[in-house]
Protein backbone atom coordinates (compact mmCIF):
# COMPACT_ATOMS: atom_id res chain seq x y z
CA UNK A 1 0.00 0.00 0.00
CA UNK A 2 2.76 2.43 0.98
CA UNK A 3 4.50 1.91 -2.33
CA UNK A 4 1.29 2.27 -4.36
CA UNK A 5 0.59 5.58 -2.68
CA UNK A 6 4.18 6.75 -3.09
CA UNK A 7 4.13 5.93 -6.80
CA UNK A 8 0.83 7.69 -7.41
CA UNK A 9 1.86 10.83 -5.51
CA UNK A 10 5.13 10.96 -7.46
CA UNK A 11 3.13 10.73 -10.68
CA UNK A 12 0.97 13.63 -9.60
CA UNK A 13 4.09 15.68 -8.86
CA UNK A 14 5.51 14.74 -12.23
CA UNK A 15 2.44 15.71 -14.21
CA UNK A 16 2.18 18.96 -12.25
CA UNK A 17 -1.21 18.19 -10.76
CA UNK A 18 0.17 19.03 -7.37
CA UNK A 19 2.99 21.12 -6.00
CA UNK A 20 2.97 19.83 -2.46
CA UNK A 21 1.89 16.73 -0.57
CA UNK A 22 1.13 16.22 3.08
CA UNK A 23 1.78 12.73 4.41
CA UNK A 24 3.82 10.99 7.04
CA UNK A 25 7.49 10.25 7.53
CA UNK A 26 9.48 8.33 10.06
CA UNK A 27 9.99 10.00 13.38
CA UNK A 28 12.41 9.23 16.15
CA UNK A 29 11.31 5.60 16.26
CA UNK A 30 9.80 3.34 13.63
CA UNK A 31 6.45 3.45 15.44
CA UNK A 32 6.57 7.17 15.79
CA UNK A 33 5.52 8.57 12.40
CA UNK A 34 5.03 12.26 12.13
CA UNK A 35 3.17 14.42 9.65
CA UNK A 36 5.41 15.69 6.88
CA UNK A 37 5.26 18.18 4.04
CA UNK A 38 6.75 16.99 0.72
CA UNK A 39 7.55 19.57 -1.92
CA UNK A 40 8.77 17.30 -4.71
CA UNK A 41 8.59 13.75 -6.03
CA UNK A 42 12.07 13.17 -4.66
CA UNK A 43 10.99 14.23 -1.17
CA UNK A 44 8.45 11.43 -1.28
CA UNK A 45 11.17 8.81 -0.92
CA UNK A 46 10.91 9.02 2.85
CA UNK A 47 7.12 8.73 2.86
CA UNK A 48 5.68 5.99 5.06
CA UNK A 49 2.23 4.50 5.49
CA UNK A 50 1.67 1.63 7.89
CA UNK A 51 0.03 0.83 11.19
CA UNK A 52 1.44 3.90 12.90
CA UNK A 53 0.08 6.72 10.72
CA UNK A 54 -2.64 7.67 13.18
CA UNK A 55 -2.26 11.41 12.95
CA UNK A 56 -5.08 13.20 11.22
CA UNK A 57 -3.54 15.38 8.51
CA UNK A 58 -6.54 17.55 7.74
CA UNK A 59 -5.70 20.23 10.27
CA UNK A 60 -2.26 20.81 8.69
CA UNK A 61 -3.99 22.11 5.59
CA UNK A 62 -4.98 25.28 7.41
CA UNK A 63 -1.37 26.47 7.66
CA UNK A 64 0.59 24.25 5.29
CA UNK A 65 -1.16 24.51 1.95
CA UNK A 66 1.12 25.72 -0.81
CA UNK A 67 0.55 29.40 -1.61
CA UNK A 68 0.10 28.57 -5.33
CA UNK A 69 -1.01 25.33 -6.93
CA UNK A 70 -2.60 22.30 -5.41
CA UNK A 71 -1.61 20.58 -2.23
CA UNK A 72 -2.21 16.90 -1.95
CA UNK A 73 -3.38 15.39 1.30
CA UNK A 74 -3.66 11.77 2.28
CA UNK A 75 -6.74 11.11 4.30
CA UNK A 76 -7.85 7.98 6.05
CA UNK A 77 -11.63 7.52 6.19
CA UNK A 78 -11.98 9.07 9.66
CA UNK A 79 -9.80 12.03 8.65
CA UNK A 80 -12.24 12.98 5.89
CA UNK A 81 -14.84 13.95 8.50
CA UNK A 82 -12.47 16.52 9.93
CA UNK A 83 -11.70 17.69 6.41
CA UNK A 84 -15.38 18.28 5.72
CA UNK A 85 -15.82 20.10 8.99
CA UNK A 86 -12.95 22.41 8.10
CA UNK A 87 -14.52 23.00 4.71
CA UNK A 88 -17.85 23.84 6.39
CA UNK A 89 -16.05 26.38 8.50
CA UNK A 90 -14.18 27.88 5.52
CA UNK A 91 -10.86 27.14 7.14
CA UNK A 92 -9.56 25.44 4.00
CA UNK A 93 -10.32 25.84 0.34
CA UNK A 94 -11.11 22.66 -1.59
CA UNK A 95 -10.00 24.28 -4.86
CA UNK A 96 -6.39 24.22 -3.66
CA UNK A 97 -6.48 20.70 -2.35
CA UNK A 98 -6.23 17.29 -3.93
CA UNK A 99 -7.38 14.43 -1.72
CA UNK A 100 -6.27 10.85 -2.02
CA UNK A 101 -8.48 8.78 0.20
CA UNK A 102 -6.39 5.92 1.50
CA UNK A 103 -7.63 2.70 3.01
CA UNK A 104 -7.12 1.91 6.66
CA UNK A 105 -7.82 -1.12 8.77
CA UNK A 106 -7.03 0.47 12.09
CA UNK A 107 -3.97 1.99 13.65
CA UNK A 108 -1.91 0.35 16.34
CA UNK A 109 -1.09 1.54 19.84
CA UNK A 110 2.53 0.69 20.67
CA UNK A 111 1.79 0.99 24.36
CA UNK A 112 -0.83 -1.74 24.11
CA UNK A 113 1.77 -4.06 22.52
CA UNK A 114 4.17 -3.26 25.30
CA UNK A 115 1.44 -3.89 27.81
CA UNK A 116 1.31 -7.45 26.49
CA UNK A 117 4.81 -7.84 27.90
CA UNK A 118 6.51 -7.58 24.51
CA UNK A 119 9.77 -5.68 24.95
CA UNK A 120 12.72 -4.61 22.80
CA UNK A 121 10.57 -4.17 19.69
CA UNK A 122 12.55 -3.52 16.52
CA UNK A 123 10.03 -4.04 13.73
CA UNK A 124 6.36 -4.80 13.25
CA UNK A 125 4.81 -6.27 10.12
CA UNK A 126 1.24 -7.24 9.45
CA UNK A 127 0.18 -10.66 8.30
CA UNK A 128 -3.59 -10.81 7.86
CA UNK A 129 -5.21 -10.22 11.26
CA UNK A 130 -1.92 -10.80 12.97
CA UNK A 131 1.00 -8.57 13.79
CA UNK A 132 4.44 -10.12 13.56
CA UNK A 133 6.73 -8.38 16.00
CA UNK A 134 10.50 -8.64 15.75
CA UNK A 135 12.13 -8.04 19.09
CA UNK A 136 15.61 -8.28 20.47
CA UNK A 137 14.40 -11.46 22.10
CA UNK A 138 13.02 -13.06 18.95
CA UNK A 139 9.78 -12.98 17.03
CA UNK A 140 6.48 -12.44 18.83
CA UNK A 141 2.93 -12.39 17.50
CA UNK A 142 -0.32 -10.77 18.55
CA UNK A 143 -3.80 -10.12 17.18
CA UNK A 144 -4.01 -6.68 15.64
CA UNK A 145 -7.52 -6.27 17.04
CA UNK A 146 -6.12 -6.46 20.57
CA UNK A 147 -3.72 -3.60 20.15
CA UNK A 148 -5.73 -1.06 18.17
CA UNK A 149 -5.65 2.56 19.21
CA UNK A 150 -8.51 3.66 21.45
CA UNK A 151 -9.87 5.83 18.66
CA UNK A 152 -9.99 2.91 16.23
CA UNK A 153 -12.23 0.91 18.55
CA UNK A 154 -15.17 3.10 17.57
CA UNK A 155 -14.26 3.30 13.89
CA UNK A 156 -16.82 5.17 11.79
CA UNK A 157 -16.26 2.81 8.86
CA UNK A 158 -14.00 2.50 5.87
CA UNK A 159 -15.88 4.88 3.63
CA UNK A 160 -14.31 8.21 2.70
CA UNK A 161 -16.68 11.14 2.97
CA UNK A 162 -14.75 13.21 0.44
CA UNK A 163 -11.88 12.47 -1.98
CA UNK A 164 -10.56 13.12 -5.45
CA UNK A 165 -9.25 9.62 -5.88
CA UNK A 166 -9.10 6.51 -3.78
CA UNK A 167 -6.35 4.07 -2.97
CA UNK A 168 -8.32 1.73 -0.84
CA UNK A 169 -9.18 -1.94 -0.80
CA UNK A 170 -11.91 -1.98 1.76
CA UNK A 171 -13.99 1.09 0.93
CA UNK A 172 -17.34 -0.68 1.26
CA UNK A 173 -16.59 -2.47 4.48
CA UNK A 174 -19.14 -1.61 7.12
CA UNK A 175 -17.90 -0.08 10.33
CA UNK A 176 -16.99 -2.59 12.91
CA UNK A 177 -19.34 -2.77 15.82
CA UNK A 178 -19.43 0.83 17.04
CA UNK A 179 -22.16 0.19 19.56
CA UNK A 180 -19.58 0.27 22.31
CA UNK A 181 -18.71 3.85 21.46
CA UNK A 182 -20.62 5.28 24.38
CA UNK A 183 -19.98 2.46 26.84
CA UNK A 184 -17.54 4.43 28.95
CA UNK A 185 -19.74 7.51 28.88
CA UNK A 186 -22.65 5.37 30.04
CA UNK A 187 -20.54 3.86 32.72
CA UNK A 188 -19.64 7.29 34.03
CA UNK A 189 -23.22 8.46 33.82
CA UNK A 190 -24.29 5.51 35.91
CA UNK A 191 -21.88 6.38 38.68
CA UNK A 192 -22.95 8.57 41.55
CA UNK A 193 -22.18 12.24 41.30
CA UNK A 194 -19.44 11.84 43.92
CA UNK A 195 -17.83 8.98 42.01
CA UNK A 196 -17.85 10.95 38.80
CA UNK A 197 -16.34 13.90 40.60
CA UNK A 198 -13.58 11.72 42.00
CA UNK A 199 -12.96 10.15 38.58
CA UNK A 200 -12.55 13.46 36.81
CA UNK A 201 -10.69 15.07 39.66
CA UNK A 202 -8.19 12.23 39.41
CA UNK A 203 -7.95 12.36 35.62
CA UNK A 204 -7.86 16.11 35.13
CA UNK A 205 -5.40 16.68 37.94
CA UNK A 206 -2.84 14.93 35.74
CA UNK A 207 -3.16 17.70 33.14
CA UNK A 208 0.06 19.59 32.66
CA UNK A 209 -1.51 22.08 30.23
CA UNK A 210 0.88 21.10 27.45
CA UNK A 211 -1.97 21.97 25.05
CA UNK A 212 -1.30 18.89 22.91
CA UNK A 213 -5.04 18.08 22.91
CA UNK A 214 -5.80 21.56 21.68
CA UNK A 215 -3.06 21.72 19.10
CA UNK A 216 -3.83 18.35 17.54
CA UNK A 217 -7.59 18.88 17.37
CA UNK A 218 -8.84 19.74 13.87
CA UNK A 219 -11.87 21.51 15.37
CA UNK A 220 -9.89 23.43 17.99
CA UNK A 221 -8.11 25.54 15.43
CA UNK A 222 -8.62 29.16 16.40
CA UNK A 223 -5.95 31.55 15.27
CA UNK A 224 -5.70 32.61 18.86
CA UNK A 225 -7.21 30.59 21.66
CA UNK A 226 -9.19 32.45 24.34
CA UNK A 227 -6.87 30.90 26.88
CA UNK A 228 -3.89 32.53 25.16
CA UNK A 229 -5.55 35.89 24.74
CA UNK A 230 -4.70 38.25 27.56
CA UNK A 231 -7.65 40.46 26.61
CA UNK A 232 -10.19 37.66 26.94
CA UNK A 233 -10.28 37.82 30.70
CA UNK A 234 -9.72 34.07 31.02
CA UNK A 235 -6.18 33.76 29.74
CA UNK A 236 -4.14 31.17 31.55
CA UNK A 237 -1.02 29.31 30.58
CA UNK A 238 -0.84 26.80 33.35
CA UNK A 239 -3.39 25.22 35.63
CA UNK A 240 -3.08 26.91 38.96
CA UNK A 241 -5.59 24.68 40.67
CA UNK A 242 -8.25 22.07 40.12
CA UNK A 243 -10.74 24.67 38.94
CA UNK A 244 -8.58 25.79 36.06
CA UNK A 245 -8.04 22.23 34.98
CA UNK A 246 -11.78 21.77 34.75
CA UNK A 247 -12.40 25.18 33.26
CA UNK A 248 -9.94 24.56 30.45
CA UNK A 249 -11.25 21.14 29.58
CA UNK A 250 -14.94 22.05 29.84
CA UNK A 251 -14.48 25.07 27.61
CA UNK A 252 -12.25 23.15 25.20
CA UNK A 253 -14.91 20.47 24.85
CA UNK A 254 -17.71 23.04 24.68
CA UNK A 255 -16.03 25.03 21.93
CA UNK A 256 -15.83 21.93 19.76
CA UNK A 257 -19.28 20.59 20.74
CA UNK A 258 -21.26 19.93 17.60
CA UNK A 259 -18.07 20.30 15.56
CA UNK A 260 -16.01 17.46 16.99
CA UNK A 261 -15.94 14.52 14.60
CA UNK A 262 -14.83 12.17 17.38
CA UNK A 263 -11.49 11.56 15.67
CA UNK A 264 -9.98 10.72 19.05
CA UNK A 265 -6.73 12.59 18.48
CA UNK A 266 -6.99 14.44 21.81
CA UNK A 267 -6.78 11.26 23.83
CA UNK A 268 -4.14 9.76 21.54
CA UNK A 269 -1.73 12.63 22.01
CA UNK A 270 -2.30 13.30 25.71
CA UNK A 271 1.05 12.58 27.34
CA UNK A 272 -0.71 12.08 30.65
CA UNK A 273 -3.17 9.54 29.29
CA UNK A 274 -6.27 11.51 30.19
CA UNK A 275 -9.31 10.08 28.35
CA UNK A 276 -10.25 13.49 26.97
CA UNK A 277 -12.44 12.03 24.25
CA UNK A 278 -14.89 11.07 26.99
CA UNK A 279 -15.69 14.75 27.42
CA UNK A 280 -16.26 15.21 23.71
CA UNK A 281 -18.26 12.02 23.49
CA UNK A 282 -20.51 13.15 26.32
CA UNK A 283 -21.48 16.17 24.23
CA UNK A 284 -21.90 13.96 21.17
CA UNK A 285 -24.09 11.56 23.10
CA UNK A 286 -26.21 14.38 24.53
CA UNK A 287 -26.56 15.98 21.12
CA UNK A 288 -27.56 12.66 19.57
CA UNK A 289 -30.14 11.87 22.22
CA UNK A 290 -31.54 15.37 22.70
CA UNK A 291 -31.35 16.87 19.22
CA UNK A 292 -31.15 13.88 16.91
CA UNK A 293 -28.24 11.88 15.53
CA UNK A 294 -25.55 14.16 14.24
CA UNK A 295 -22.14 13.33 12.82
CA UNK A 296 -19.96 16.37 12.33
CA UNK A 297 -18.15 16.34 9.00
CA UNK A 298 -20.41 13.86 7.26
CA UNK A 299 -20.93 16.47 4.56
CA UNK A 300 -19.46 19.89 4.09
CA UNK A 301 -22.66 21.91 4.35
CA UNK A 302 -24.20 20.81 7.60
CA UNK A 303 -25.62 23.19 10.18
CA UNK A 304 -24.16 22.24 13.53
CA UNK A 305 -26.50 21.43 16.41
CA UNK A 306 -25.35 24.43 18.44
CA UNK A 307 -26.06 26.87 15.66
CA UNK A 308 -29.47 25.35 15.18
CA UNK A 309 -32.60 24.76 17.26
CA UNK A 310 -36.12 23.46 17.16
CA UNK A 311 -39.02 25.02 18.98
CA UNK A 312 -39.58 21.80 20.89
CA UNK A 313 -36.05 21.38 22.22
CA UNK A 314 -35.76 19.92 25.68
CA UNK A 315 -35.56 22.44 28.53
CA UNK A 316 -32.37 22.80 30.59
CA UNK A 317 -34.48 22.03 33.67
CA UNK A 318 -34.59 18.50 32.26
CA UNK A 319 -30.97 18.29 33.42
CA UNK A 320 -31.28 20.43 36.56
CA UNK A 321 -34.28 18.52 37.86
CA UNK A 322 -33.14 15.02 36.97
CA UNK A 323 -33.05 12.56 39.85
CA UNK A 324 -29.74 12.81 41.64
CA UNK A 325 -27.84 9.57 41.77
Amino acid sequence: MQEVIKKRVKELFDNNTIVRAIGWENGEFFYDHTPAVFDSAADMDVFVYDNFCASNLSKYLINHCAPEGKTLVLLKPCDTYSFNQLLTEHRINKDNIYIIGIGCDGMVDIDKIRALGIKGITKITQNGDELVIDTMYGEKKCKKADVLLEKCLSCKGKKHMIYDELISENEDEMPQDASKRFDLVNELENMTSEERFAFWQNELSKCIRCNACRNICPACSCRKCVFDNSASGVASKANADSFEEKMFHIIRAFHVAGRCTDCGECTRVCPQGIPLHLLNRKFIKDINTLYGEYQAGETADQRGPLTDYTQQDVEPTFISDKEVK
Binding site: T88, E89, H90, R91, S221, C222, R223, K224, N229, R303, G304, T307, D308
Partner: peptide
Amino acid sequence: ELLCNGCSQCEKVCPYGAISY
Protein backbone atom coordinates in the same frame (compact mmCIF):
# COMPACT_ATOMS: atom_id res chain seq x y z
CA GLU B 1 -10.42 40.78 12.66
CA LEU B 2 -7.13 39.58 14.10
CA LEU B 3 -8.89 36.94 16.16
CA CYS B 4 -11.56 35.96 13.64
CA ASN B 5 -11.24 32.48 12.15
CA GLY B 6 -13.76 33.23 9.43
CA CYS B 7 -15.60 30.06 10.39
CA SER B 8 -19.11 31.41 9.68
CA GLN B 9 -20.65 30.06 12.85
CA CYS B 10 -21.74 33.49 14.01
CA GLU B 11 -23.41 34.16 10.68
CA LYS B 12 -25.64 31.14 11.21
CA VAL B 13 -27.10 32.32 14.52
CA CYS B 14 -27.63 35.97 13.56
CA PRO B 15 -31.38 36.59 13.32
CA TYR B 16 -30.88 39.79 11.31
CA GLY B 17 -28.45 38.69 8.64
CA ALA B 18 -26.15 41.40 9.99
CA ILE B 19 -22.95 39.38 9.64
CA SER B 20 -21.20 38.92 6.35
CA TYR B 21 -17.73 37.72 5.43
